[in-house]
């Protein structure tokens, strides 16, 4: 995939408030077609919630946005910058790992299983990327980290190790860690699926708080109530395509497609 020529002529920076632009994205794992032409637009400051049955490709879509997965066709841009490729004339050149890593510092990613670094304290988890990737002075990074921990309600856990925290606390640390890079967009991959039911609320509250302050977010989740309350746009995916999207009132209360109705009737 060194020369991707598909849809190059459309790959131009968008200046109309679009933060994330996903265009005709295909992704295969061997013979399995996981994404079969996904289009998605997220405006700055908006919250997009992606719903869909497991295997519908929603996690894979999220992972292509920060280039954890390479796309096979199509392209993705964030704030007008192509992800994973550099355009030169009529060709797309694959970016070097170093440049992909730099692009990822603009994209916060929160994993289902938190993936905190267990051998580092909470504070060190938060300052690792700002210090090593953005070359922030350690002092400054620590100040930011403390402020963020306070924001997620964990100011007293600065020196704890991740395994000394509950799942909900770990996920809040993971959110703070993603925020420490001051990303342009935050991606959440089923952030509450690994949590005990009584811990889901504290994590959703943090995400809601971020939504109120205008953070651009894409959230893959099974929490329909959360989608209804927070989302500007709800996207329903099935079998590798976006089946329908729109405001929560439209998609959740009067879905147009049979597949959306079938899914919602099972989870509501």
């Amino acid at each position: 995939m060194s020369d991707v020529t598909v849809a190059v002529k459309d790959a131009k920076p968008t200046a109309d408030g679009v933060m994330v632009d996903v265009h005709g994205v295909h992704k295969n794992f061997g013979p399995l077609q996981v994404l079969r032409g996904v289009d998605l637009t997220v405006r700055a400051g908006e919250v997009t919630v992606v719903l869909g049955p497991s295997g519908s490709g929603k996690s894979t879509l999220l992972r292509t946005i920060n280039h954890l997965e390479k796309v096979d066709r199509g392209w993705i841009s964030i704030d007008g910058e192509l992800i994973g490729y550099r355009r030169s004339g009529s060709k797309l050149h694959e970016l070097k790992e170093k440049d992909v890593l730099r692009q990822r510092t603009h994209i916060g990613f929160v994993f289902q299983n938190f993936n905190l670094f267990p051998h580092l304290t909470v504070l060190d988890n938060l300052i690792e990327a700002p210090v090593s990737a953005l070359r922030r002075p350690r002092k400054e990074a620590e100040e930011t980290a403390r402020r963020l921990l306070e924001r997620v309600g964990l100011a007293d856990k600065t020196n704890a190790y991740p395994r000394q925290l509950s799942g909900g606390q770990q996920q809040r640390v993971a959110i703070a860690r993603a925020l420490a890079l001051e990303p342009k967009v935050l991606l959440f991959d089923e952030p509450t699926s690994a949590l005990d039911p009584e811990l889901v609320g504290e994590v959703l509250d943090v995400i809601k708080d971020l939504a109120r302050t205008g953070t651009t977010m894409i959230v893959v989740t099974h929490e329909i109530g959360f989608a209804r309350e927070v989302a500007d746009t709800v996207v329903f995916m099935d079998d590798g395509v976006v089946v329908e999207q729109g405001p929560p009132s439209a998609v959740l209360d009067s879905p147009q497609h049979e597949r959306t109705r079938a899914f919602l009737s099972k989870v509501l």
Partner: peptide, 19 residues
């Protein structure tokens, strides 16, 4: 997941290994 998290945070490759 540890490597994925490090990659998602944009931590430079050598630093990922060492740290």
């Amino acid at each position: 997941g540890q490597l994925e998290a490090a990659a998602a945070l944009g931590i430079p490759r050598l630093r990922q290994i060492r740290r």
